[in-house]
Design a protein around this nucleic acid. Structure first.
Length: 424
RNA sequence: GGAGAAAUGGCAGAGUGGUCGAAUGCGGCAGUCUUGAAAACUGUUGAGGGUCACACCUCCGGGGGUUCGAAUCCCUCUUUCUCCGCCA
């Protein structure tokens, strides 16, 4: 959520940024917001002066009672009746206007960074880096869902029976490989200075709002209506919300956290060939990295996160590329996002396996995540996060790219985590 | 699940209807002293709104109520602690 004061004072910048996102009715939205803000402040001022007056009278009454002048006190009491009426009405108006303003602010996405390319869809994303050799596979190489069946390591039908589509069961070496990857990712993240945490997999409404899933992506999360809790779509939500309503000291920066969690996504409206096998699931595992940074250091941090993910992919020996998302494809809350994609030879397509973003103050404003700066003023911090990494597509990429006629060769770095070198 | 107690500023902890945004201590920051540091002393130190700046307004777990006036009284929710029971 952008700060109203920022919108008020930087209207042109905001409009320009929203234009890059191809946001329809941006002008109207911004105008309405500014008007609602003005009205809110005007009502607030009126209310404040009425409250000031009645506070004063109350104090006077106190004095009069003390000095025994009950008669005079009774007269003053009469005066407050009218003030009370007025303040009641104004309080109600203020509440309504504040809600209206809040609703409007929820509709305005983050302002993209200068270097975010213009564009309307994923076609316009900019490839900024590419690395790794695409292996030449043997005749008869299979997509991962065939491999999963052949070696009996992932069972989609069984998951379908237990729960439904998109909830696979990992079996035998498949389960072990999955666990190996999780441990490997966590270890890599820890080595890089990320502090490991285990967090709840269900979150409350305030947390969903804090990181921006609510109210924007309400329908994407599984919701337990009985207790009003949401299954997390990513560890970003519980981990970042560690810092909700927190005022940090400046020397507490930088903050680096990593967590492994399952992720739950309803993925309403996603069907077709591209969601086969592991490509799109309702439940999947992910290791996430989250950072809270000083505003002057957040882009440096973003680069460091990108480099960190690069190193992991290098070690896994996977061919990948990095995209800078364009204005039309970048997430609602993000100012700059880099997507990592692994090339799947057997599917002949790129699979998104990581998304690394800087949210600047957008989340921090919702979270009320601030720090005391060197002038002693409170200032919003910057938040960032990225996947390091999402399991299923890494798994898909590994299975497909590492397949040989003899079986699936486990990358060197994973062998000590798996305890085996080949799936056959 | 049953019984009881509690929730106040970074922390500890006072405050049971007016002069309380809140004593005191610790911590933090600044200064004096010192070659420097420690100690001691002095000052300062919550958040949000509002203003050019003041004024002013709101906030004592959340919500509601009583009252001219609520940290203080009432209702309700949440959370924590203690004891008992049950269970991993």
């Amino acid at each position: 959520m952008l700060q109203v004061a920022y919108i008020r004072e930087n209207k042109e910048t905001v409009l320009k940024g929203l234009a890059k996102r191809n946001l329809k009715n941006a002008d109207e939205l911004v105008e309405k917001t500014i008007t609602a803000d003005e009205e809110r402040r005007s009502i607030q001022t009126q209310l404040d002066s009425i409250l000031a007056e009645s506070n004063k009278i109350s104090k006077d009454i106190g004095q009069l009672f003390k000095s025994g002048e009950r008669q005079k006190a009774e007269i003053l009491k009469q005066k407050t009746v009218q003030l009370k009426e007025q303040s009641k009405i104004l309080t109600e108006n203020l509440q309504n206007k504040a809600n209206e303003l809040q609703e409007l602010l929820y509709l305005i996405p983050n302002i993209p960074n200068e270097i975010v390319p213009a564009g309307s869809s994923e076609e316009d994303n900019l490839t900024v880096f590419e690395e790794g050799k695409v292996p030449v596979l043997y005749q008869g190489a299979l997509p991962h869902w065939e491999l999963a069946k052949k070696y009996d390591i992932i069972d989609f039908e069984l998951g379908n029976k237990i729960t439904g589509a998109g909830f696979p069961v990992y079996k035998g070496k498949g389960a072990k490989l999955q666990r190996a990857l999780i441990n490997y990712f966590l270890d890599k993240n820890s080595e890089a200075g990320y502090n490991e945490v285990q967090v709840p997999h269900l979150v409350n409404e305030a947390s969903g709002i804090g990181t921006g899933q609510l109210p924007d992506k309400e329908g994407q999360m599984y919701h337990d209506a009985q207790d009003n809790l949401y299954l997390i779509p990513t560890a970003e939500v519980p981990v970042t919300n560690i810092f909700r309503d927190v005022i940090l000291k400046e020397d507490e920066f930088p903050i680096l956290k990593t967590a492994y969690t399952p992720c739950f996504r309803r993925e309403a409206g996603s069907y077709g060939a591209h969601v086969r096998g592991l490509n799109r699931l309702h439940q999947f595992d992910k290791v996430e990295i989250v950072r809270v940074e000083h505003p002057t250091k957040s882009y440096e941090a973003l680069d460091s996160m990108v480099n960190h993910v690069k190193e992991i992919l290098r070690e896994l020996n996977l061919p990948y590329r990095i995209l800078r998302l364009c204005g039309g494809d970048i997430g609602f809350t993000s100012a700059l996002t880099y997507d990592f994609e692994v090339f799947s030879t057997a599917q002949d397509r790129w699979l998104e396996i990581s998304s690394v973003s800087n949210f600047e103050t957008f989340q921090a404003n919702r979270l009320k995540l601030r720090f005391k700066n060197s002038d002693g003023k409170t200032e919003l911090a910057h938040t960032l996060n990225g996947s390091s990494l999402a399991l299923p597509r890494v798994m898909a990429g590994l299975l497909e790219n590492c397949q040989t006629p003899e079986g699936i060769k486990i990358p060197e770095v994973l062998v000590k985590y798996c305890g085996f070198e080949i799936i056959n």
